[in-house]
Structure formats: C-alpha cells, structure tokens
C-alpha cells in the first residue's frame, strides 16, 4: 500500500528560505534510507505559495474562479511530499516518525495519508469490495 507523507508549509518555507545545511543533509540521508529499504517511490519539494494559483468553484455548476498566491494560512499549505510503498499502516507510521523535523521552532508538521489503490492490489476483502463499488459508481457516472 502507498502512503503520502505530506510536509506542511511553515513561515520559512513560505518565505522561500532554504533549509539549513544540517536539515538538508538529514533529509538527504533519510531519503537514502527510504531508497535502501526499497520503499521510496517519489519525493518532491514545492515552491512557496507566492507562485501558486488556486482554482475554486464558489457557485455550484458555475465558472471556476482563479486566484493567484500567496496564501496566508501556512498550516493548510504544503511544502512537499514523499510517496512510500509499504506493507502496512504501522510501517508507514514508523517511517513517518523517522523523517527529520522539517522545520524546528515547533512549526514542523507531517501528515500521513493513505493513497487509494486498485481493488486488484488490495489483499483485504472488505476494502476490495468497497473499492470495487466505488469504481462501479465512477464508471457509471454519465458524462455531462
């Protein structure tokens, strides 16, 4: 199963301040550890929200609204993500706990989210039924 470890944005990441060399090295070492354990699928860092664009739909069925960054609520923004492929939720949690504190100063936060899988790839029977039902709904939905 795949999990995404989402690193939340901080004042520094939003300001475009590069992490200090120690953190940089710790992160590189951590990514190497993930790779050597065969669990690393992808890892990316994102530009600050000052260069981001938001597309929202304030009216149901209406036209999208385009808003340019920056956005202010740092905790709701993300600064990067790492995608890992693991055997269990417990393994994912253990890997996430080993990620270096992405910021320090009490601002660091990592969120762990499970990625939806194809029903064929799920060993758990209950989960498989749920996913199959979901796919059924999606494929049945008429195109507008």
């Amino acid at each position: 199963m795949r999990f995404m470890m989402i690193v939340k944005a901080t004042t520094d990441s939003e300001a475009g301040t590069m992490p200090n060399p120690e953190l940089f090295e710790a992160m590189a070492r951590y990514n190497e550890e993930l790779a050597r354990a065969g669990v690393l699928v992808a890892a990316e860092g994102l530009h600050p929200s000052s260069s981001s664009i938001r597309i929202s739909y304030p009216e149901p069925g209406g036209k999208p609204k385009v808003i340019d960054g920056p956005f202010t609520e740092a905790k709701e923004l993300i600064a990067g993500f790492t995608l890992i492929e693991v055997k269990s939720r417990e393994e994912a949690v253990q890997w996430a706990m080993r990620m270096p504190d992405p910021h320090g100063f009490g601002e660091g936060e990592i969120e762990l989210r499970q990625v939806f899988e194809a029903p064929e790839l799920t060993e758990d029977a209950e989960e498989r039924t749920k996913l199959e039902e979901m796919r059924e709904q999606v494929t049945r939905k008429p195109r507008s």
Partner: peptide, 8 residues
C-alpha cells in the same frame, strides 16, 4: 509499533 519496526 513493533509490527512496523520489525518490517523495517
């Protein structure tokens, strides 16, 4: 936790 740690 040990389940995850064993795996790693």
């Amino acid at each position: 936790s040990l389940d995850g740690i064993w795996r790693i």
